[in-house]
Amino acid sequence: MRLFLAIWAVLLALPSHALEVFATVPEWAALVKEIGGDKVNVFAATHGMQDPHRVEARPSLIAKARRAELVVATGAELEVGWLPIVLREAGNPRIQPGQPGYFEAAGFVRMLDVPARLDRAAGDVHAAGNPHVQTDPRNILKIGEALAERLAALDQANAGAYRAGLAAFTAKWRAAMARWEKEAAILKGVPIVVQHRSWSYLVDWLGMKEVAALEPKPGVEPSAAHLARLVEQTAASRPRLVVRAAYDHPRPAEWYSAEAKIPIVVLPFTVGGDDAAKDLVSLFDLTIRRLSEPLR
């Protein structure tokens, strides 16, 4: 009882209320921060060096979800291995799927790689399509618009601040996009090989050509024999780069790069995936620079 009272005292002593947001991945935490500013208190459940597919339903996440007023998830089954447990264990009805306090980014963009046939024999496929939607800045803009609306609906007192935050972000983002598209013009039509199919949206935006993935099937580690075959198979399409995420196991890309004699590009994938990727703008600055540098 004394503990309970002590907790209440601590809670009451907290300064003015900010909307508690639980983001599953750093990119949505960064986006909420851009739009919400000081009106939100954002927690990112994972950081940039973590594979978002392999996250554990850690006790600390349940504790954070317990107090959250809004959960911002990617959806499309990206978090299926841990988020349902965290949400159920938290005992917090506001953030259950279907409630206004549960936001799924994948619901607001056009999904790529939607499988025509659902079969686990095809590996770790996502029924709703490729969940790595944040690699296309046009998606960030669409998701940002929906997110600002949701924030405004949940925290009506600060609705104006969220709309203003969105307007400022949109202006900044559009200018940055024009810069990236200009800088990335040389990437148009460039054939690349990826380690995991994390980059479908980025490839689509920049007009690159994804020739092959090192993983034989999504989520399945490539064997040496598979990589050797792949080097032969992809030789004809002359890939210029092999791309992996910062959290990916380095060996497959290194092996392929050595055999096929093309450079590896390690992309941050999300905010915090590299020291230089501090926020969304620097994330894309770095991504474009890393991709275009070996081609200059």
């Binding site: 600390s60 504790a63 107090r67 938290a90 005992g91």
Partner: peptide, 12 residues
Amino acid sequence: LKWVAPTDLFIE
């Protein structure tokens, strides 16, 4: 019946 405390430290 389970209860999770509203604290940063996970207490259940």
